[in-house]
């Protein structure tokens, strides 16, 4: 069923995955440094890891609290 997908040139797709990984790693670094976030801290961990792309972005926009 997934025959078509095997022919995909990973050189083209790889940058997309790398960008998503960088976003996730930075969000995790910031998350681990922070004592308090907007809303429960453990929930943000789940969001960052399991919601692809949008999770880290939402964390940066809504999760961080500037004190």
């Amino acid at each position: 069923m997934f025959e078509g997908l095997e022919q995909i040139n990973w050189g083209i797709i790889a940058p997309l995955i790398v960008i998503q990984l960088i976003l996730m790693v930075i969000a995790l670094v910031d998350w681990s440094k922070r004592e308090v976030t907007n809303g429960p801290k453990w929930l943000w961990l789940l969001i960052i890891i399991f919601v692809t792309t949008l999770g880290p972005i939402f964390y940066f926009i809504f999760g961080r609290r500037d004190d």
Binding site: M1, F2, G4, L5, I8, P15, I19, I22, L23, I57
Partner: peptide
């Protein structure tokens, strides 16, 4: 994060359009 997100947004459409036939196939 802002440059990365903007980069992601701008490369997303050309790539998905290119692979649209394969994606539909699969």
């Amino acid at each position: 994060w802002v440059p990365l997100v903007i980069l992601l947004l701008s490369i997303m459409d050309p790539i998905t359009t290119y692979y649209m036939p394969e994606i539909l196939d699969a």
